[in-house]
């Protein structure tokens, strides 16, 4: 079957969607983009409170910064997944009207989450100054891991978005999955408390490699663990591949059910 309605990547549309969603999401909000900051701060305070009676170790680092360097990237990831996952459902009207390349919608959702990420990063920067952290050259590797987070979020987001159009259950269940995923990642606690015999299975979660890399780079100024990083690259790559393939196949029929 040949269909030559051309829908190439439309960068203008991508930019316009990001701009639109940015304006729309805080339209009736008092504190606007500060919400991005608040979200991470609340998690941080919650974790500090939990730690005060559970005695969670933090590899000899101040717990506040130890937790913050994982909370902020995780919040970016979970926010991006949630946005990308609902992007098709929320833009049904647009899709019904116009032949636009469907991938643009989850991609715009991820890019928008970068804005929140940038705002939330203020916490990490502030705490880094407060605790007088020294930043090493390894920080140049950090963008790679931020990109990995985005890749992983896009992959999962595309899966959720494409199935969610047909069966809403996956969108309804997403918050629980993200909660469990957060507990299964080294955010509140260090990787070192995971028993050694479980470590390999635990590290199949690509978040482990990514968040550990954030910690190595920001807290120790050291290079991230190579094996964990490669596992994260492989995991994120695989998720994007599966997510994108599903999305490509199912997206053709979105309009028929939206």
């Amino acid at each position: 079957m040949v269909h030559s309605v051309h829908d190439p990547w439309n960068w203008h549309l991508l930019a316009a969607l990001v701009r639109r969603d940015f304006k729309a999401q805080y339209r009736r909000s008092l504190i606007g983009p500060a919400w991005a900051l608040l979200y991470s701060v609340i998690y941080l305070l919650l974790f500090i409170a939990i730690r005060s009676f559970l005695g969670i170790p933090s590899d000899g680092k101040p717990y506040a910064i130890f937790a913050a360097v994982a909370i902020v990237p995780w919040t970016f990831f979970s926010g991006a997944v949630a946005r990308a996952g609902t992007s098709i459902m929320l833009n049904g009207q647009l899709l019904k009207k116009m032949a636009v390349r469907r991938e643009i919608l989850p991609t715009a959702a991820i890019i928008l989450s970068f804005v929140d990420f940038a705002v939330a990063s203020i916490i990490v920067i502030g705490l880094a100054f407060w605790f007088g952290l020294t930043i090493g050259w390894s920080i140049l590797l950090l963008p790679i891991f931020v990109l990995l987070l985005a890749v992983c979020a896009l992959g999962i987001g595309m899966m959720v978005a494409s199935i969610g159009v047909y069966k809403r259950d996956i969108i309804l269940g997403l918050p629980f999955v993200l909660q469990i995923w957060m507990l299964a990642s080294p955010i509140m606690y260090p990787l070192s408390i995971v028993p050694v015999e479980w470590r390999l299975a635990y590290s199949l979660n690509p978040m482990v490699g990514i968040l550990e890399a954030f910690r190595s780079i920001l807290l120790d100024g050291a290079l991230p663990d190579l094996q964990l990083s490669l596992m994260a690259v492989a995991g994120c790559g695989l998720l994007l591949l599966v997510g994108w393939t599903m999305f490509k196949t199912l997206s053709q029929y979105f309009v028929d059910v939206l």
Binding site: M1, S4, K96
Partner: peptide, 22 residues
Amino acid sequence: AGVSPATKGEIDVRGRVFPMIE
């Protein structure tokens, strides 16, 4: 308009399309 896929058959539409559907 390319909004919904055909099940069978060939479609060739040339040029910039503005569909005012709905």
